[in-house]
Structures are given as C-alpha cells and as structure tokens.
Design a protein around this nucleic acid. Structure first.
Lengths: 256, 256
DNA sequence: ATTCTCAACTGGTCCGACCATCAGACATTC
DNA sequence: GAATGTCTGATGGTCGGACCAGTTGAGAAT
C-alpha cells in the first residue's frame, strides 16, 4: 500500500505459495479496523475518495472497490454527493448473510440435525424463561396466536405462518433481541423443511395439540412443564423432518 | 440494469424519497440470488468480467465493484488470470463479521445482559446433553482441561484461557459444529469482560469450584445436575460482570 | 431571521490503456 | 504413450481521464 509499485517485496519461496493480497483488500482491512476501533463512530463520514486516493497512493477504482466491499458488509452507507458514512449493524442484514451459510450447511450431511439440536436447546430454554416471566398481557398475546393457529387448520400455508407466529410470541415474552433474531432466522431457514413436514398426515393436528400444551404450561407459569412440552414438540417434529438431502445438480460452465 | 441510460423511470414523488439503487448493487443481488439458487455451485466460476459487462450493459468498474462486494461477503473467491469462483461459507469469516455486530450490541444498554441470557440457555442445554452423551474418552478429555484450569490458578491470563478450554470441551462432547461455533464466538466477544471479572477477588477460586462441580455431574452422567451447576456458575458470573459501558468519545471530522 | 442561489465538493459511471497471471493447446523429449 | 516445456489467448489488477448528477454550505437578497 505504501509501495504502489508492487504488492510485496521480492518473493521468497513461501511467499510464492500464498495468494498476494489485492490492494483494495488491504484498504478494506485498514478502514474496517479503524471503524471497529472507533476511529470513526456510527454516522461519521469516512474520508472522501479523493483523499483516500491521495493518502494511500492508489487509483480511484481501488478506493471504490474497497468502499463497495465495506458497504456490502453493511459497515458503511453510501449516498451520491456525500462521503460514505459508518453504519450501525443491522440485524436484518446480518441474518440475510447468515442465511447463505445456513442454507449451505443444511445441505450438508447432519446439517439439519445440528440445527434441530440447537433449536431444541434454545427453544426449550426460552419456553422455560417465558413461563417464569409471562404476565397477563403476554399470555393474552400468546393465546391470540394460538387461536389464529387453530383457525388456520386445513390451510397448510396459513398454518405454517401461524406456527411461526406462535413460536415468535414465546420469544417475545422473554424480550431478548438476540433470541428474537434467532427465532426469525431459523424460521426462515426452515421454510422448505416445514412446508414439507406439515404435509405429513396428522402433523398439523399433532403440532397444534403440542402448542396447546405449551401454552397451558406458560399460562400456569410452570417453567419445567413448558420446557418439557417444548422438548416433546420439537423432538416429534424432528422425527418427521426429511432425511439429509442428496447432492443437487451442478451448474455447468455455460451460463444458459 | 436493462436500461443503462438512467437508474429508473421518471421519478414519482415516492420514488424521490427513496435512495436510488446503485447499479453495482443490482448486479450483486442478481448474482447473489443465482449463487443461492444453485445456478452456480461451490467452486463453479462466474462469467468473466467482459461477459458480465456485455450481458448487463455496464462498465467494467460496475462489474468489479459487484465482484468486490460478493468477495467481501465471502461468497466468491478471486484470483488473477481466472474468473471469480463461488466459495463455500467459511465459519471463521462469518464469525469475524458477526463480531462487529456483537461488539456493537455489547456496547448498547442491555447488550451484555442479552448475551448472558442466551449464553445461559445454550450452555445449560449443552451441559445437559453432554452429561447424556459423555463416554469415558470425552470425560477424560474434560478432566484434562479441568486439571489445566487448576494448574493455572494464580495466573490470570492462563486461567482465562483454560476457562475457555473447559467450556469448549463440554461443547465438543456434544459434537455439534453450530454449538462449537457459538462457544468460540462468545468466548471471543467476552474477552475483555472476562479479563475484568477474573480480577474480582476470589473469582478464580469460585469459577474453578464451579467447574469441578460441573465436571462431577457430567462424569456421573447426571443431566439435571450438570444443567443446574452450569446455571449456577453462569448466574454467579453474570453477577460480577461490569455494568453497561458508557458512550465512547466520537471521532471528529478531522482524520488526524 | 429566513430563503434563495451558486460554487465547490463529492460520488456514479463510462472509456481506454497497460501489465501480470493463468490455463490449455501444441510441440518436444524420453 | 507419458511427461515436460512453450506459447498464445483469456482473464483479472490497476491506473488515468472524462463527464454527469447530487449535496452542502457560504453568501446574497428579502
């Protein structure tokens, strides 16, 4: 970066085997580090493109590529006519990025099993805390989602949607944004799997009955019972989930 | 994108208030969607820059910015002389990106409390499963980490490190990569907080004793006891964690 | 004090140029 | 026939220049 004539000094043997880092990547690292260290706080503008070009002795393309990369990570926000500004992390953004990883891992052997185990841990723990912390208002809200779930029997799409709402309402009782985000993410990642499993004969009835028992335990402020009912529900659910998917056909070299 | 003469049709009032999307962002969306849909599988090359320029009628800069953005998200890998290739999600990469968000949220009021609650849920659940699934080999490994933790008494840095190892060994008993990743991430995010709390008089002794009790429960294959001892340990730990941090000074407009 | 104008700053996108790296086809050697 | 070397075309990395659209703030006008 301070030596624009080449990416590195004369290459040693070991250096030949490593991928030389692109200049814009170095600039990304520097700027990202400064952002994380608080040199630039949220909503602070970064230096202008022209200033960065001059300071680091690189072309405008290199600067723009670095800004595009930071923007792509949600670290900065760009607007025509003004400098890029540091942005606060957005949960939506992070979840969409995790989705790609999640989708990939769900396609690996054992991926769904791993996620269901994590889900079992988190949702049973959440149900327990919800039963400890529920008040009359949150119980009423949870009951409303249960009624909507009941009304959706016979309509698979609506049942799946209200199923998600029921689980999310339990998370909302706890009032922890990280748990809310986990619930939202998992329901998105499991969309296909859920739709498939709900088509199993009798599965919507079984799921609804489990919801009724979970609700009753939370209404009764019984943490152990809530945790056990949720555990039973998710264990039964895991039993009707499809086996690990097989490899999907690969795209060939031609585009279309 | 299909109309390179301008980003949009004549602006309506509502459109004036929205941020016009940059062309390279549209290209990122198209390519990211195609990657997620499996049009390009892992290790498949994307079209060349020149092909993308021609197909979408944009400049090379626009294409390069889009590729830089995808690379920054870890979705593609670039190499001079060959086309960008789709890469499998790398856990290290995702964790480092989540770290920025986590660090930000930990600095918000209630952030640490939220994380500790999630940690309580996940680590008690993990301890319970570990007690169910432990065999002689994994118990011996856990015991080894406990002995190293004991040997580190009096050396705060080493105690903190072996503390992490002890918790990670519990996760390893379960053998779920997502849980392993969660443990690794949280230990990183809590580095500062941990170092501070271990300086509380008597805290290393209390932590070590809790580890002994947790180990005894897992050795005895007692899930309920393991879960309870972990819950006690983390609850006590949360009690010595520092209060929410105050706002940090902002970077001013000048660079240095 | 408020509003308007304008110039400077800033980013968005395009084009052209040159150089380094890679991969595959073909020739040569054993 | 298999292994190795050479060369060429494809490809990416980086630079510079150009032009246009958007933003902001200082100064003028009311």
């Amino acid at each position: 970066m301070t030596d624009p004539d080449g990416p590195a000094a004369p290459a040693t043997r070991a250096r030949r085997l490593l991928k030389p880092k692109r200049m814009h990547e170095e600039l990304v690292e520097i700027l990202a580090t400064e952002i994380c260290e608080g040199v630039y706080g949220t909503d602070d503008p970064l230096p202008s493109e022209r200033d960065l070009m001059e300071e680091f002795g690189v072309s405008r393309l290199t600067v723009r590529e670095a800004i595009a990369a930071l923007q792509s990570r949600g670290m900065v926000t760009t607007r025509p006519g003004t400098r890029a500004r540091v942005s606060a992390p957005q949960p939506d953004f992070l979840l969409s990025m995790l989705s790609q990883a999640a989708t990939y891992h769900l396609a690996q052997p054992g991926g769904l099993r791993s996620l269901m185990q994590v889900r079992l841990i988190v949702e049973t723990g959440t149900a327990r805390i919800a039963a400890e912390q529920a008040d009359d208002r949150t119980v009423a809200e949870l009951k409303a989602t249960l009624e909507r779930n009941r009304a959706a029997m016979g309509d698979l799409e609506a049942f799946g949607r209200t199923d998600i709402e029921f689980h999310a309402a339990i998370a909302r009782i706890v009032g922890n944004p990280m748990i809310d985000a986990f619930f939202a993410a998992v329901s998105e990642w499991l969309t296909e799997v859920r739709n498939t499993s709900l088509q199993t004969p009798g599965q919507t009835e079984r799921a609804f009955k489990a919801h009724v028992r979970i609700f009753a335990a939370i209404e009764a402020r019984d943490p152990m019972q809530a945790s056990e009912e949720m555990s039973r529900h998710l264990t039964q659910l895991a039993g009707v989930y499809p086996p690990a998917p097989t490899a999907v056909p690969r795209h060939d070299e031609d585009r279309r």
